[in-house]
Computed example of a mutant assay.
Amino acid sequence: MGHTPSDTIAVVGAGVMGRSITALALGRGVHVVLVDVSEEVLGNARAEIAQQLRHGQFMGAFPGSPAPGTLTTTQSTSDVADAAVVIEAITEDASLKARVMADISSTVPAGVPLITNTSGIPIAELAKSVQRPAELAGVHFMNPAYLIEMVEVIRGPQTGDDAMAAILSVLERLGKKTVVVRDAPGFVTSRLLHPMINEAARVVAEGTASVEAVDRLMHGCLGHPTGPLRTADLIGLDNLADALRLLAERTGNPTFEPCELLMEKVRRGDLGRKTGRGFYDYGKVLS
């Protein structure tokens, strides 16, 4: 590869979050090995990451304008073995994540920390699949990762001091502000944000206020940056429904179950910005 491990990270999963995390790292001058099972997905990811890099540069997200890192794409997880840290960023599916984490864990040498990018699956649950639970922690990157400065870092019950120090050092290199929290379903941000979005959708379904009115009130009165329903469209309504089901299941609280309006939109395929329509109409499908 030609790079030293300290300036190379591996990202496993070239979906929405994997692309965004990759753009963040490249923009900060860090080299990235991006892994996915699909060559087609990797090809599309390359084009979108280049676009995100340009957007990040335009928005001043990479201070000092370092020379961008190089991107290597591969379909083989064996190519992650030389990275300083491996970030798993596949879809938010606990059993799929567990399988991928087991594969990565058997590939990387001892001492290389593993990060799972999750919005709410308990780290203790995923730690059962890895060979060295002390080297696993969670990082909940917000989308787009190259623009949102803060991340939620989740220390699992078995996460060791060395891994935590290494992970915080990598995040600092990526320009992130960090808040470390303890392990729990939904952690802090999802535990608070996702049920709020669910309630906002219920308010609309009950006819109390329109989508626009809910968001304007939350923005104007309570300082929410975009409003909960516009935020839902950015997250993806299918992802949101999955996260809410996970919260309901893991906490035993049935009020977290996704409401009917949300499920109706998911069934119709109106999943938010990525499909062109969710709570708002965006006019065209985003590629």
Rank of each mutant, 00 (worst) to 15 (best):
T4E: 00
S6Y: 03
I9K: 03
G13N: 06
V16I: 13
I21L: 11
T22P: 12
R28L: 07
V35E: 03
D36M: 01
N44H: 01
A45F: 01
A45K: 00
R46D: 04
R46G: 01
R46C: 12
F58R: 14
S65A: 14
G69A: 04
L71E: 07
T77G: 10
D79F: 01
A81M: 06
A81T: 12
A83L: 08
A83M: 04
A84M: 04
E92S: 10
S95L: 15
S95G: 15
I104G: 13
G120C: 11
G120R: 00
G120E: 05
A124Y: 07
L136V: 09
G138M: 11
F141R: 14
N143E: 04
I148S: 00
G156S: 11
Q158F: 04
A165S: 13
A165L: 07
A165P: 03
G175N: 10
K176F: 12
P185I: 01
G186H: 03
F187W: 02
F187T: 00
M196H: 07
E199H: 06
A205Q: 12
E206F: 00
A209L: 14
S210V: 11
A213E: 15
D215C: 03
L222C: 02
H224T: 11
P228T: 11
R230Q: 11
L234N: 13
N239G: 11
A241N: 02
L244F: 10
A248T: 02
A248D: 00
E249S: 09
F256I: 07
F256V: 04
E257K: 06
C259Y: 08
L262E: 04
R267Y: 01
K274I: 09
G276M: 08
Y280W: 08
Y280N: 14
G283R: 04
V285G: 03
L286F: 12
